[in-house]
Design a protein around this nucleic acid. Sequence first.
DNA 1: TTAAGTGCAAATTATTTGCAGTAAG
DNA 2: CTTACTGCAAATAATTTGCACTTAA
Lengths: 141, 141
Amino acid sequence: MDHPTLPSAADWLAKAGLRPTRQRLALAHLLIGDGKHRHVTAESLFEAARRAGDPVSLATVYNTLKVFSEAGLLREITVNGAKSYFDTDTSNHPHFFWEETGDLSDAPGDELEIARLPEAPAGAEISKVDVVIRVRQKAPA
Amino acid sequence: MDHPTLPSAADWLAKAGLRPTRQRLALAHLLIGDGKHRHVTAESLFEAARRAGDPVSLATVYNTLKVFSEAGLLREITVNGAKSYFDTDTSNHPHFFWEETGDLSDAPGDELEIARLPEAPAGAEISKVDVVIRVRQKAPA
DNA sequence: TTAAGTGCAAATTATTTGCAGTAAG
DNA sequence: CTTACTGCAAATAATTTGCACTTAA
């Protein structure tokens, strides 16, 4: 069923040196199984696992997403005061945040061009730059 | 004590059409009293009010900050999963977020230059663009 | 065997809300 | 007067944690 050119969930974990437990393999498969990037929250991934018939506790989903992010497999994006999204695309790219629905989607990364960036203050270094473009439904005339 | 060229807390509320209650005046004064921009959280402003001897409940601080933001007097910035910051500088400018301490500070706005921005998807419009530059202490060699 | 991973339920943190009382227009 | 604002305490939402059990190495 897996396409040979796609990295398997096991490979994905292995390259980060993470133990391939049943739960992690299941979540990893849901995240990268089809090779397409996606944005999940702990809650949405928990739901997806439930629908797929993989029993995983919500706490483990939270822990696993954090572990994946720390290992560089995912990128955490915090948009709203409350929710964290995790993006399987770890490259530096901007996001659209839909104010009405709370959804997050990729913005075409090649259409953002930052000509100059402020320098990090002395003794500090830039870890990453988050660009969130908040959009809303255009009001009907 | 107030410098005549600084807008008073009362003026500041008036221009947004907000009722000048004792609590709002006190919080407004703490926010813009000296004409300098600042970043506060509900908790930090609550503490500042307490220290200044202005009795205000935490719930009112939360509500007031939200009202001020909706009225365009403040700009809300959500950085981490948990906390919201409110900035008295409502212009579009980037921020430094200190990963170790959770502090937020202004980054010089004139050193950020966005050459191109992705267009909003059809039917949508850009409400604002948040640029957060995450910085951390440089590791000592 | 043994340190890491998991699941549950309870704990935490940031924020919101219901509702009775208080004050601004 | 009358509607908005305030304060408290309880409610909520997202996330984390303590601890006994399970599993990968």
